[in-house]
Structures are given as structure tokens and as C-alpha cells.
Design a protein around this nucleic acid. Structure first.
Lengths: 333, 333
DNA sequence: TTGTACGCGTTATCAC
DNA sequence: GTGATAACGCGTACAA
């Protein structure tokens, strides 16, 4: 069963292929309504689909976008991905998904692949700082791109991210207003900008009221459940705090585990506030108070930015506002 | 900056384009090592990437696979997706992601789109029973496909899924062995095959020991947290059971919430066993005992099946074995 | 062992 | 308003 070509349609409709091509590309100008209808009918009848290889050869457009994220298994990214997909789809683009595992070499190889596949643009959530390889590939490949969530705060490229400092500040204010004076912060890593900015905002809130955050109250949870669990358990066994701010929600889960094993009640013995508001948190008991990023809409906006850049040459840097969602894991002292 | 073509490479290497094409397509036979090296070097030097539009026009291959899932935000699917991507990537294929929202019309429209994009194959996790539209699109579109997890148990198409009945049986046996005699089951829906089979297996285990599962001990949780929470809370307020089997892990989260609000301790007052073993469950306290499906490897296998079908015409139906993972949410009575 | 020339299915340019 | 026809960049039969 051979695929139909524009020729077949032309033949069946009794017109030339140029005419068929015209109706296909909705060039409204100069065409009798009659022929248009006829051709359209034949197309419908035969269920003709234009060959995108042939079309792309000329237009150089694939209507494909690459989506490079560290790992779709991290609950943050499905939200982002879904937002991007919905928006892309609305503009007739499809998404090719690539998991980089936060591995620079893998990331670079995917960018190379996407470039080779002739995607029209790339949505990239890279490591904290773009690796040399990545940056090179991005610039050399000269495929339009937008940076999402990470790697984008240099102000150099089209990008979208949340105001992390403000988010951290919000978390700090909240705990302070609840009367907490002995607090700790579980960071993602010493070198990640997202993590550092959240911590900075958290500190700013504390400095405003003359509080200190001792260095040994800053714990590295590597942005994941397990390390956060281990580190926070050890910490809670030795130090006495009434509240913890975790730089993402995943790490809050780890703290829940630790607190549970140590017989500490949340929020009675320990208040916890997270960051991200991934859907997962509604499964925690009590539900997690957290700093919300509108991840889904960041995904949508990123896709929109990329498409606007591709189609209209626009450039933009968008910073989303975080907000605090108070649930059951924080309580006045 | 114009993209290089095979012609440029031919010119720079002082050979014809067919020679370049030969080295590109690794046709080892008949070629002097010398020219080969030279061409390869020029390709490397100029960083030439073949135009896939032109190539596809001839080979009719896009090296693109479509992945249609209900919703990547459901934690089951990122696992599946990741497995599929890893395997596809290993065979030089890329994945286009499509979320159907369990909406037959949307699904059909995506299948149509994928067909139009000339993907080489489709991985589909459809609704329970393939809709008429979907089936039509699948057959008419004549793009190879593999059914994953759902919609595939008719034995009619290449597909992969877990032995749901056995999984349910495993869950039942476990609770029985722990001494539970008053149990309930939270199903996904009355009409979903996956759900029904799990229930059937659960029942078989009970029948083996002469137990009954009254109709009013079968609760519809719609495979999601919220409805499971509401229904189970109402149920637990009125009925007296010592254990609950939820037909997926998400619903187990809902039961955790309900139990917590009713002051019931897990596993002391209530044992819970789930199904799927999605990563999320490690965040629950206590950790969830569940029936594990090897979702990641199902994804890989599905991609492998599809590629084997595309490249070698092989057909297959694969049934994965479920296994039980005992954690902290079940306890002997 | 290497080169020539045609065709893949479109769109775009230019006649008519 | 509509129709020829030349690209687009590659793979391949066939020729050399």
C-alpha cells in the first residue's frame, strides 16, 4: 500500500500539482472557490497526507522541537514536559524527548542529535552552568533554543526560571512569622545556583530580623530523598531545631522519613517547608507547606518563547514569581 | 551560515558524491581504505551532518518513534517513557511524546499526527479497550505499533503487559498469610481490564482459603489519590477491615490519608498493599508494600519489540511477571 | 574502485 | 487562476 502523493491528488482532481500545493498551503489569494473545494474533497476522500520529508527539504522546517531534561523520572520534569507539550502541540509542533541524566557528555550528544534531526528548536533544562561542550554545541549548531529552570540565569540566552531568591525569602518569612528561631536549611548542593539562591533568600529573611543561620545548620541533601533522609536524620539527632527549609520537595520527603523514625511529629515537633510544589507532596502526611513554582506553565511559556523566537525572531528572559502554599507541615511555635 | 551538503564534502575530498554517500552508509565492500579515511576526515573536519529530509525521502525512514501515553504526569508513565527512550536511543531512534489524556479523540488525532510525521513506529499505551477510532487509525495508518500496559490484552496485536491476575493473587496470598480475614479492595474502575484482572487474582487467593469478598468491600477509587481517599475514608468509617488491597499505588496514598485522619495506624490498625511500585511510594511512611511491575524494563522491552518489528518483521506478545515487594505497610494480625 | 545521472515528493518561480 | 518546471540533498542503479 503505497503512500499517496500530491500527484495522485492532482490527477484525481483534474488539476495540476501546483494547484494542489496551493490549497495545501492555504494560500487564499487567487483561487476559485470551486477548484479549492474539489481538491479539498479529494484530499479528504483519499485521506492524503503530505510527505514531510519532501516538504522539509524545501522549507527546512521539521515542526519538531527537542526537549532535553535531566531525567523525566524526577517528578519536577513531567510537569514541565507536559506544559511544553501542550503549548507546542497547539502550534503544530511535536516534542522529541531526551533525558540527559545531568551528564554533560550525554547532553551534548543529544543536542548534536537534535541538531542532526533538524529540529526547529530546543528546550533545554541543563545543568546549573552550561558545560563548555553544551554551550559550544548550542552555538555551533545554531538551532534556536530556550533554557528552562537551570543554566539560564546568566542573562545571556533566552530563558525562563523562577525567582529562587524570592522563594527562599518567602520560606524564611513564613517560618519567622510562625515564631521559629532555631531553623536549618537543606540545600541541594554547594555549587548549584538554584540552591544557592534559595538559601540566600532564606538568609535574607533571617537577617531582617537579626537571626543567624550557622554553617552547621546548612545540610547538603543533594536534591534527592535518600541523602536528605540520611543527612537530616543525623542532624536532627544532634541538633535542636524547630523548623527546616528544604530546597526542594523531594528532600522534604527524606526529612519526613527521618522525623518519623526519630519519633518527631510534623508539624508539632518540627515544621517543614519545601520548594517546588510537585504533585507528589499531596501524598505526604501531613501535606507539605511549600514554595510553589508554576512548573506546568513554565513549560508552556518556555515552549511559547521558543516558538515565538523561531517564527518571529523574538527574544526574552522570563522570571516566574514563586508563591507560598501553606498546608499542614508548618505550625506556629 | 548554510548547511553543508554532501556535495561540499565531495568537493573538498576530491571525490564524487556517491563515494561520500558510500562511506556515510558504511558500505564496507569495495572501497579503498585511503579514500574512505580521507572522506571521513573531511566530514569530521567540517562537522558535516547529512540532511535527514533528503535521506528520508529516499529511505522512507525517520528514525522517529511515537510514544503515546495517557499522561506523563501520572508517575507510572515517566518510568515507562524512560525505559522506552533508553532502548530507542540505543538503536538510533528518537521518541516523540504525546499525552492523550485518556481521551479517545485526542489519541486518535495524535496517531494521525504521528503517521503524518512519518514516524517509523508507535508505542501506545491506550485506554483499556482500543477505541474504534484508535483501532481504525492504527490499522489504516499502517505504521507499526506496540501496545503497552493497556489496550493490549486482546492477543491481536504486538503488545506488552504485566500478568495482572497473578499480581492480584500475590497481593491476596500475602494478606492471607499475614492472617487477615476481613479485607477490602480498592479497584480502579468497574470497566478497566487491568483493574478487573487484579481483583480477580485477589479473589482467587481468597477463594482458595474459603474467604469471601463481599460486593460492598469493593470500592471504586478511579485509580487516583483523591477519589481513593474519599471512598476509603467513608468505607473505613463504616466497615471494619484489617487490610486493604489497592489496585495501584496512587490509590494507596489516598488510603494513607484517610487512615491518618481517622487515627488509624498503618500497619498496626490497617495493612495496605498497593500495585505498581512507582518510585513515589518510597516517600510514604511507612513505606508501601506493593506488587511490583518492572515498569522501566517494560518500556525498554516495548521499544525493543517495536524496533525488532520494524527492522526484522518480528511479532510478539510479552507478559511480564509481577512480584511482591514487602515493606512496612503490611503486618501480621 | 569510483563517478554519472535519475528519482524521491514537495514548494517556489515563472510563464500562460 | 492555473500549470510547467527547477530546485531541495541524498541514495543507488548503472556505467566506466
Amino acid at each position: 500500500m503505497k503512500r499517496l502523493t500530491i500527484k495522485d491528488i492532482a490527477a484525481k482532481s483534474g488539476v495540476s500539482i501546483s494547484t494542489v500545493s496551493r490549497v495545501l498551503n492555504r494560500k487564499e489569494e487567487g483561487m476559485s472557490q470551486e477548484t479549492r473545494e474539489k481538491v479539498l474533497q479529494v484530499i479528504e476522500e483519499l485521506n492524503y497526507q503530505p510527505n514531510l520529508f519532501a516538504r522539509g527539504l524545501i522549507t527546512k522546517q521539521s515542526k519538531l522541537l527537542g526537549l532535553v531534561v535531566p531525567n523525566i523520572q524526577n517528578p519536577f520534569f513531567p510537569e514541565l514536559c507536559r506544559g511544553a507539550e501542550d503549548e507546542a502541540n497547539r502550534h503544530q509542533y511535536s516534542l522529541i524527548i531526551c533525558n540527559s541524566d545531568d551528564n554533560a557528555a550525554k547532553e551534548e550528544s543529544y543536542l548534536r542529535l537534535l541538531n542532526e534531526k533538524q529540529v526547529d528548536g530546543i528546550l533545554l533544562s541543563s545543568g546549573d552552568n552550561l558545560s563548555v561542550l553544551t554551550e559550544k554545541q548550542l552555538e555551533y549548531g545554531n538551532t534556536p533554543f530556550v533554557l528552562m529552570d537551570r543554566g539560564g540565569n546568566s542573562g545571556k540566552y533566552n530563558s525562563i526560571f523562577v525567582d529562587n531568591e524570592k522563594g527562599g525569602y518567602l520560606a524564611g518569612r513564613h517560618l519567622i512569622e510562625l515564631g521559629h528561631r532555631k531553623v536549618a536549611c537543606i540545600i541541594g548542593s554547594k555549587n548549584l545556583r538554584n540552591s544557592n539562591e534559595r538559601l540566600a533568600g532564606f538568609r535574607r529573611a533571617m537577617m531582617e530580623v537579626g537571626m543567624e543561620l550557622p554553617d552547621d545548620h546548612i545540610i547538603n541533601g543533594e536534591f534527592h530523598i535518600e541523602p536528605a533522609y540520611k543527612q537530616s536524620k543525623e542532624f536532627l539527632e544532634n541538633k535542636n531545631v524547630t523548623a527546616i527549609f528544604t530546597c526542594n520537595d523531594l528532600m522534604a520527603c527524606g526529612v519526613y522519613q527521618a522525623a518519623s523514625e526519630l519519633g518527631m511529629k510534623i508539624p508539632d515537633d518540627l515544621s517543614i517547608i519545601g520548594f517546588d510544589d510537585i504533585p507528589l507532596v499531596s501524598a505526604l502526611i501531613p501535606k507539605l507547606t511549600t514554595i510553589r513554582q508554576d512548573i506546568y506553565n513554565m513549560g508552556r511559556r518556555a515552549a511559547k518563547m521558543l516558538i515565538d523566537h523561531i517564527e518571529k525572531g523574538e527574544n526574552d528572559i522570563v522570571i516566574f514569581e514563586p508563591s507560598i502554599i501553606v498546608r499542614g507541615s508548618t505550625k506556629a511555635i
